[in-house]
Amino acid sequence: MAGVESAVPGASAGPELAVDGASNPDIDLLYDINGLTKSTPDWLDRAIGFVGEYGLLIALVVLVLWCWASVRRRPEPEVSVAGLVWAPLAAGIAVLINIPIRGFVERPRPFVDHSGLELLVDGKSDFSFVSDHATLAMALGVGLFVANRKFGLIGIALALVEGFCRVFMGVHYPTDVVGGFALGTATTLLLAPLAMALLTPVVTAVSRSRAGFLVRARRVPLPHPAVDLPEPRVADDATDTGSGRNDLAA
Results as ranks from 00 to 15, higher is better:
Ala192Lys: 06
Arg219Thr: 15
Val227Thr: 11
Ser12Pro: 06
Asn246Ser: 07
Ser131Leu: 08
His114Leu: 08
Arg109Thr: 01
Ser115Glu: 14
Pro108Phe: 05
Ser207Met: 01
Ile156Cys: 08
Gly244Tyr: 12
Leu63Val: 02
Trp86Leu: 01
Val81Met: 04
Leu198Pro: 04
Ile33Gly: 02
Ser12Ala: 12
Ile58Asp: 10
Phe145Gly: 09
Val62Ala: 13
Ala249Gln: 12
Leu189Ile: 14
Val105Asn: 12
Phe127Leu: 10
Arg166Val: 04
Leu57Ser: 09
Val51Pro: 01
Arg102Lys: 15
Glu106Cys: 11
Pro223Ile: 13
Ser115Cys: 06
His172Gly: 03
Val142Gly: 04
Leu199Phe: 14
Val95Glu: 15
Gly212Cys: 03
Ala22His: 06
Phe127Asn: 14
Leu119Cys: 07
Val64Tyr: 00
Val171His: 00
Gly116Asn: 00
Ile156Pro: 00
Glu118Trp: 10
Ala69His: 00
Phe127Tyr: 15
Asn24Trp: 04
Glu5Leu: 04
Glu231Leu: 10
Arg218Phe: 02
Ala147Pro: 08
Glu16Ile: 15
Cys67Phe: 01
Val121Glu: 03
Val167Gln: 04
Arg109Asn: 05
Leu229Glu: 14
Pro223Tyr: 09
Thr175His: 10
Tyr173His: 12
Leu199Asn: 05
Val112Gly: 07
Leu198Thr: 11
Met138Glu: 02
Arg72Phe: 02
Leu44Ala: 05
Pro225Ile: 15
Cys165Gln: 03
Leu120Val: 14
Arg218Val: 02
Ile154Asn: 03
Leu36Lys: 03
Glu106Asp: 12
Val95Gln: 15
Phe50Lys: 08
Phe213Ile: 03
Arg210His: 15
Leu63Thr: 05
Glu162Ser: 09
Gly163Phe: 01
Ala91Glu: 03
Asn98Tyr: 03
Phe129Asn: 03
Leu140Ala: 05
Pro225Asp: 14
Val130Tyr: 09
Ser6His: 10
Asp45Trp: 11
Asn98Lys: 05
Val178His: 07
Arg109Met: 07
Gly155Asp: 07
Ala87Arg: 06
Pro75Glu: 13
Val234Trp: 06
Phe213Gly: 00
Lys38Ser: 07
Asn24Gly: 02
Asp32Arg: 11
Asp240Ile: 15
Pro225Thr: 15
Gly143Cys: 05
Val71Cys: 02
Asn98Glu: 13
Ala69Ile: 09
Pro77Ile: 00
Thr187Asp: 02
Gly49Ser: 07
Pro100Val: 10
Ala13Met: 06
Ala195Arg: 02
